[in-house]
Design a protein around this nucleic acid. Sequence first.
DNA 1: GGTGTAAATGAGAACGTTTTTCATTTATAT
DNA 2: ATATAAATGAAAAACGTTCTCATTTACACC
Lengths: 140, 140
Amino acid sequence: MESQDLRKAGLKVTLPRLKVLEILESAEQRHMSAEDVYKRLLNMDEEIGLATVYRVLTQFEGAGLVSRLSIDGAHAVFELEDGSHHDHLLCIRCNRIEEFIDEVIEQRQREIAQQKGFEMTDHSLYIYGVCRDCQQKNES
Amino acid sequence: MESQDLRKAGLKVTLPRLKVLEILESAEQRHMSAEDVYKRLLNMDEEIGLATVYRVLTQFEGAGLVSRLSIDGAHAVFELEDGSHHDHLLCIRCNRIEEFIDEVIEQRQREIAQQKGFEMTDHSLYIYGVCRDCQQKNES
DNA sequence: GGTGTAAATGAGAACGTTTTTCATTTATAT
DNA sequence: ATATAAATGAAAAACGTTCTCATTTACACC
Ligand SMILES: [Mn+2]
Ligand SMILES: [Mn+2]
Ligand SMILES: [Zn+2]
Ligand SMILES: [Zn+2]
């Protein structure tokens, strides 16, 4: 019952919020843009505006239910927050997104921040490349 | 003589391009947004449009003369390309930007890409935090 | 179950950054 | 000097995202 998640987050239980949560939970793609979510809503014949989708996703972010990736110049994408930090690998051909976590990198980042006198609050790491599938498609 | 840099890059030698190059070379801040460059031009009483500044910076990027940082949701910032890759630390209070390079992180990234079957083409790493100066200003 | 109130929504306007369009100007090869 | 392709300025458009404001809705209380 997702209603509890919403109430716990101090948000009223409304149809747009339930539907957006449902989409994020059942999507085959874990990382979705606001536009992706909006299109899915249209397919489900839900008359929910794009502005509402943005609002809801932003509120979910504030409530810690989702996190937002700000990839380069592209759209922001959102994913359900599962409490575990991770970073991302992106295919520049097909936009596939893979996740990874590397403690060595995490630790080095902390050391670099300390060495430069920074109190680290966050970091953002994206590795770009061509995924295995896209490499094969390109063999000539 | 910056004209040579331009000609080498296959770009005609024009006043806007010379001025933008000059600004990037003499700026006290190594990282500048298009707007920053444009404002500097106005101060120098050069009547160069913002669209031209964007165009020139984008061409310089294509020619390998400058590189573009796409920081989170903020403006893009540009810096003169010196051939040496580095990553960035950003102060979330005063927007100060510091540079660093860490071979351990670079190497781990290569390993992660390989492990996931990606042919790595690029990466982007930003560490966010509060710089030393801004920490002191906040002591209560 | 009604009622009142604050919160949430939809539609479209506004936003800030960046790109495009198009008529005019300019650099450069001849 | 001339011709031609490239570069420019100004304004409009594009883009993703946020805001405004009139209307609707959730839900605390009776
Ligand atoms: Mn993820
Ligand atoms: Mn730099
Ligand atoms: Zn791919
Ligand atoms: Zn600072």
